[in-house]
Amino acid sequence: MSTALSFDEIKTKQHKVWSSGDYGRIAWVTVPLAETLVEAADLRPGARVLDVATGTGHVAIAAARRFCDVTGIDYVPDLVDAARRRAAAEDLDIDFLVADAENLPFEDDSFDYVFSAIGVMFTADHQRAADELVRVCRPGGRIAIASWTPAGFVGQLLKTVSRHAPPPAGALPPTRWGDEEAVRSLLAGHAVSTTTTTVTQRFPSEEHFADFFLTHYGPTHAAAARLDEVAQRALREDMITLATASNVSARDTLRSEWEYLVAVTDKP
């Protein structure tokens, strides 16, 4: 039996995963989630906003378009650089920083809204990340989180990857954040409203999806790099099978509905 790693050791491994591939290309698929999340939170123009694990800045940009004072953080410098370029292209004034979701460099009660879309779910220490979201939100402020569900397409994809390349011993399942009871537990003491919805994803084919994710998506790219050629082919075939089972297109393409959970809570 493998010895469980500490959260700091797991975080180091996770950082390497998210620094691999090219998440900037994968981030395209989460653009619609940003708009859904800020609407679910009923974002007030002029508010001070923090986007945690911003990636390439979707939620931060959506908030800035609503005339908010926005900060976005991520612990992968290349993603922060991409977010800055995107904001500059729209002449949006957003403060993007390289920082850790489990150790936010802000004082208590600093923000009116704290968001994370497909972000904090991939932290190592879930409770520490949840506590940080609450800590930096002001009393009366709002926290809103979007996470892939365990039963949804990405949840099943992550399970598929884990069968071929198991995660480090002691690593928590990211889709825990996409489970209603679990996210309520993480935000204990705060009333949480949840909504489960889907985002439509389209690819030229199931094979294209598999190859695109194996090339660009950190978890699948890093997993494949750990495997020999035969095992890589087996992983690819399982990804194609998963995509085929999810396909609802009547045409010769892939159209799949990817389920995620939106959780919103107000800090007392």
Rank of each mutant, 00 (worst) to 15 (best):
105 P>L: 10
106 F>A: 06
107 E>H: 12
107 E>Y: 03
107 E>T: 10
108 D>T: 10
108 D>C: 04
111 F>D: 10
112 D>I: 03
113 Y>W: 09
120 V>I: 15
121 M>W: 09
121 M>Q: 14
124 A>S: 14
126 H>G: 13
126 H>Y: 12
128 R>Y: 00
128 R>G: 00
128 R>I: 07
132 E>R: 09
133 L>K: 03
137 C>R: 04
140 G>K: 06
141 G>M: 08
142 R>T: 15
146 A>H: 04
147 S>V: 06
147 S>E: 12
148 W>C: 09
148 W>E: 08
149 T>C: 11
149 T>N: 13
153 F>R: 03
155 G>D: 07
155 G>C: 09
157 L>C: 08
158 L>Y: 10
160 T>W: 03
161 V>E: 08
168 P>T: 00
170 G>R: 02
171 A>S: 14
173 P>G: 06
175 T>Q: 12
176 R>S: 15
176 R>A: 15
177 W>M: 10
177 W>H: 13
178 G>L: 07
178 G>S: 10
180 E>W: 01
183 V>I: 15
187 L>I: 07
188 A>Y: 02
189 G>D: 10
191 A>I: 05
191 A>H: 08
193 S>C: 01
194 T>G: 08
196 T>G: 03
198 T>Q: 10
201 Q>Y: 02
201 Q>R: 12
201 Q>C: 06
202 R>T: 09
204 P>W: 01
204 P>L: 06
204 P>G: 05
205 S>K: 10
205 S>Q: 05
208 H>D: 15
210 A>D: 14
210 A>V: 12
210 A>K: 08
210 A>S: 15
211 D>N: 13
213 F>E: 00
213 F>S: 01
213 F>V: 01
217 Y>L: 13
218 G>Y: 00
219 P>V: 02
222 A>P: 00
222 A>R: 00
223 A>Y: 03
223 A>E: 05
224 A>C: 10
224 A>H: 03
224 A>G: 14
225 A>W: 02
225 A>V: 01
225 A>Y: 04
226 R>D: 00
